[in-house]
Design a protein around this nucleic acid. Structure first.
Length: 641
RNA sequence: GCCCAGGUAGCUCAGGGGUAGAGCACUUCCUUGGUAAGGAAGAGGUCUCGGGUUCAAUUCCCGAUCUGGGCUCCA
């Protein structure tokens, strides 16, 4: 009999006859391991315990663990099947589409005859618990293509899934039954699964959403049920607690609590910044301004409302029309700019440019408006009116790579100033809806790829997601729930300079079109503020805190002294205020802490007599009494250089 | 734009076909205090908007709008 070699996690090698199942291997190691085992992983592929092993390789037995992504993967996938059976039981006529595990849990896309709502969750969870209690085996059943076609006859989604499997070249199609095939509920599915429903120890249905069949908005709208599943109750509870905690960091929550900004019905997707939020907003702008001016950028300011003819020439009227706000000036059609690039080209086009002028870096904190679809807005993260820390670098082809590299360094440095690391970099290539010839796109993509390499970045390929005028690099940051948001970006564009007639005189005394690099480091100030608020949970570093110091008089008798302290702090360029409410000191401390103010200075009789302040530093507590001058010195040490 | 759920006091939310509720916040008074909520009183609402059903609608129905979770789209 043919033998295969399993390399166990401790690197020891175990020889077994081909056809042995994972379950048998587990039993041969130890009974307790066999009882715990959920699945096995061989050669990087997860298999059911009951599947016969046919090839050797790195081998391990997957047991329940909240720290093992493979364990969670099989548990969640299996839990999705239990969910699907429960829904099919409760709402006969339900048709199923996909039910995969995802990073934080699982979902199932389905079409039920009755619209589902959150009110249905208890019933669904109850039915799931019953199925789990019955501890039915997940039974794999492999059938030839013809049989799979017969079984999925008339089932639009499953038939389509089966056909896709065949198109991929699958000769055998697998089904999984929650119990006995032909008797219990079953689903077309590649697996793998845990041995039985009873192995699911901790799950919860979280939410309901709509999703398009195959992500195509012209296709069927399905109902997506999201759930989570963990190895045990503690894991589930920890996750639910995490979600609760995330809510407290939510920038929309903190925007209200810390009085930073608000959004209102009159202007959906456009932000009303309150004084403290406006401070933060300007702090970001000022910091970026300082950094880019030191790196060879020049700042410009351009109009927000521009005649339609420019947008026709730039291609926006054709490719970006539905996203533009339109307005009239008399009988002239105008549009509110959705991007700054055409305006910057207009500046470039003033006067003759020589090759000696390149690279020319024009920067603008440019306010853009985009009429985004109603359902896409999200707090500060996705708005209709926003300011980009934008710039356009006009350069030669040879200058692309060094300019991209310099920009990548700038992004890295700038994010580090805010205490962030670049989470992810994506390389997005030509979209379907685009301008320019394929030759130019080939050139642009190759140039960006080379520059990415030069910058030493590990970029993930994101095909078809580029801008309509060029490929781009995207710098992605995460919000409190781990959702991705594109912040910085740089895009190589051979198209717009040609369309808008930008030229420079080369060393050969001929006119040439420059290459244009579109780039934004923070992306939009709005979105970056949102990320910043969540990252710090409103507990901003000293240099970004809208209020840095609050002075708390013990009683109204010491208000005059508090005001003296205030004016000295303001003179020292410290952002300070006085709490002169008629409350006890305990209450004022509480308020100051809740507003996350870095320093609270308590002043009462003792301080008044000694010309002192009692310092309380956020998160570190009481720092004792100090002279005001000493406090200012310590305070200044807390600011970045 | 699509699916589901919401919109009640400044905030967080309860309620329900017949004069609108709580806690916090706010104002005034008492209190003048020493490091995370002192006490009392008061004020505050066209129950998102528009239609419909009804003797009567904040409540039920329809539509609009905004918000939330997703999908699609994007900085």
């Amino acid at each position: 009999m043919q033998e295969i070699e399993l390399i166990l996690p401790d690197k020891s090698v175990r020889k077994i006859p081909a056809g042995t199942t994972g379950q048998q291997v587990a039993e041969s190691i130890s009974q307790s391991l066999a009882r715990k085992a959920l699945a096995i992983k061989i050669g990087g592929k997860i298999l059911d315990l009951s599947q016969p092993l046919t090839t050797g390789g790195d081998f391990r037995i997957i047991t329940p663990s909240n720290d093992d992504p493979d364990a969670l993967y099989v548990l969640r996938h299996s839990c999705a099947h239990v969910l699907a059976e429960a829904v099919c039981d409760l709402y006969p006529g339900t048709r199923l589409a996909y039910g995969p595990p995802v990073d934080e849990g699982f979902y199932y896309d389905l079409a039920s005859p009755k619209p589902l709502s959150d009110d249905d969750f208890p019933a669904i969870e109850k039915r799931m618990a019953e199925i789990i209690k019955e501890d039915r085996p997940f039974t794999r059943c492999e059938v030839p293509v013809e049989e799979a076609m017969r079984r999925t006859e008339g089932d639009k989604y499953k038939r389509d899934n089966a056909e896709r499997a065949v198109a991929r070249g699958d000769k055998i199609i697998s089904f999984y039954a929650n119990g006995e095939p032909g008797k219990n509920w079953e689903d077309l599915c590649a697996g793998p699964h845990v041995p039985s429903t009873g192995r699911l120890k901790a799950f919860k249905i979280l939410s309901l959403a709509g999703a398009y069949w195959h992500g195509d908005q012209n296709s069927d709208q399905l109902t997506r049920i999201y759930g989570v599943c963990f190895a045990d109750k503690e894991g589930l509870q920890k996750h639910l607690t995490f979600l609760e905690e995330a809510k407290k960091r939510d920038h929309r929550r903190l925007g209200k609590d810390l009085d930073l900004f608000h959004l209102e019905d009159h202007s959906p997707g456009m932000v009303f910044w309150h004084p403290k939020g406006a401070f933060l907003y300007n702090a970001l702008r000022n910091h970026v301004r300082k950094v880019i001016l030191a790196r060879g950028y020049q700042e410009v300011i351009t109009p927000e409302i521009v005649d339609k003819s420019l947008w026709i020439r730039s291609g926006h009227a054709d490719k970006y029309n539905e996203n533009m706000f339109k307005t009239m000036a008399g009988d002239k059609e105008m549009a509110v700019k959705p991007m700054n690039c055409p305006c910057h080209i207009e500046i470039f086009n003033q006067g003759l440019k020589s090759w000696r002028d390149l690279p020319l870096r024009l920067a603008e904190f440019g306010k853009c408006h985009r009429n985004e679809l109603a359902g896409t807005m999200h707090g500060l993260m996705r708005v209709r009116g926003f300011v980009q820390d934008d710039a356009h670098i006009f350069c030669t082809e040879e200058q692309i790579a060094p300019e991209v590299r310099d920009f990548c360094v700038l992004v890295k440095d700038l994010y580090a100033d805010f205490g962030f690391q670049v989470a992810k970099v994506k390389f997005s290539t030509r979209p379907e809806k685009r301008i320019g010839s394929d030759d130019l796109w080939d050139k642009a993509e190759a140039a960006l790829a080379e520059a990415t390499k030069l910058a030493g970045l590990d970029a993930e390929l994101n095909p078809g997601e580029g801008a309509f005028y060029g490929p781009k690099l995207e710098f992605v940051l995460k919000d409190c729930l781990g959702r991705d948001w594109q912040c910085g970006t740089i895009q190589v564009d051979f198209n717009l300079p040609v369309r808008l007639g930008a030229t420079y005189v080369g060393q050969d005394n001929q006119k040439h079109h420059p290459v244009m690099l579109h780039r934004a480091a923070l992306g939009s100030i709005e979105r970056f503020c949102g990320i910043l608020i969540e990252e710090y949970a409103g507990d901003f570093p000293l240099w970004l805190a809208p209020t840095q110091v609050r002075v708390l008089p013990i009683s109204e008798k010491f208000q005059d002294y508090a005001l003296q302290v205030l004016s000295k702090l303001i003179a020292a360029e410290i952002r300070a205020e006085v709490d002169n409410s008629n409350e006890k000191i305990g209450y004022k401390i509480r308020q100051g802490e809740q507003q996350k103010i870095p320093y609270l200075l308590v002043v009462g009789e003792k301080e008044t007599l000694g010309n002192l302040v009692s310092v309380r530093k956020r998160k570190e507590g009481d720092q004792g009494q100090q002279s005001l001058d000493d406090f200012v010195k310590v305070f200044k040490l807390g600011l970045p250089n």
